[in-house]
């Protein structure tokens, strides 16, 4: 079953820059997909369209049955509740504890405290940080902070996890830890993961589906892909 369908998708920004030019792509439920390509090739725009931060100029982007282009601003939150997003810069709130940061989406949805607690603890257990509930983000290493970010993205049990260069700020060892977490989420929970990355080692080691974008078009799509020697990172 296809969870993401991108059909003839064009995205042209107001300043005239074309980010995607007739992109066609399908991602099935439970897949782990790397999106790679040189800076400015349209990777970020593509994943921004998945969580409706950007709208396609032409064509269709369908995520979990929702046509992103037709989604009204006031209804975007409904799409985002079905997704989890992990950022390169973590986007954790420094004045909140690890527990509060992970509970943040559930709190803002108005869930009961008694419902929030077990879900937060489960999400933290998933990333191996259950013992850090009372810590503040600045007391954690960068790798741990990224794992908190993953826990926050997973707390709502999303079907799709979108990762925008999650290892961009991490050293190779810590990157491996984070990737192990993502891999286990994909394998154990069946969560579809779409990850934008520049990290050659990770892509080559994980042997997952690799989608290469070049100037807004699909340059290659391999099931157990790798970075090729000539590809820029």
């Amino acid at each position: 079953m296809k969870f993401i369908k991108i059909q003839d998708c064009y995205k042209v920004y107001k300043n005239g820059v074309t980010a995607t030019a007739g992109l066609n792509l399908e991602i099935s439920k439970g897949e782990f997909v790397f999106i790679i390509g040189a800076t400015g090739c349209g990777k970020s725009t593509l994943i921004k369209m998945l969580y409706r931060e950007e709208k396609p100029t032409k064509g269709k982007v369908i995520v979990g049955g929702i046509d992103v282009a037709k989604l009204r601003n006031g209804k975007v939150y409904k799409l985002r509740r079905k997704l989890g997003i992990v950022f390169q810069d973590f986007k954790l709130l420094p004045k909140l504890t690890v527990f509060e940061n992970v509970a943040f989406p559930l709190n803002s949805m108005g869930l009961k405290k008694s419902d929030i607690k077990p879900r937060v603890l489960k999400a933290l257990e998933l990333v191996g940080l259950k013992e850090k509930v009372r810590s503040y983000p600045n007391e954690l290493s960068a790798g741990m902070q990224q794992r908190v970010c993953i826990a926050r993205a997973m707390v709502n049990s999303p079907k799709l996890l979108i990762c925008d260069e999650p290892t961009g700020n991490l050293d190779p060892e810590t990157s491996k830890e984070v990737m192990d977490v993502l891999d286990s989420i994909n394998k154990e929970l069946g969560t579809t993961i779409v990850m934008v990355t520049h990290d050659k080692d990770i892509v080559n080691r994980m042997k997952k589906r690799v989608i290469l974008l070049d100037n807004g078009i699909l340059a290659s799509d391999e099931l157990k892909g790798k970075y090729k020697a000539h590809e820029t990172v």
């Binding site: 006031g74 975007v76 939150y77 799409l79 509740r81 079905k82 997003i85 803002s108 709502n156």
Partner: peptide, 17 residues
Amino acid sequence: RNEIEIMRLVGTSNFVI
């Protein structure tokens, strides 16, 4: 603004924000 951005991204409705 950071808090608002996170709220938007984790699916908080506009009204609640």
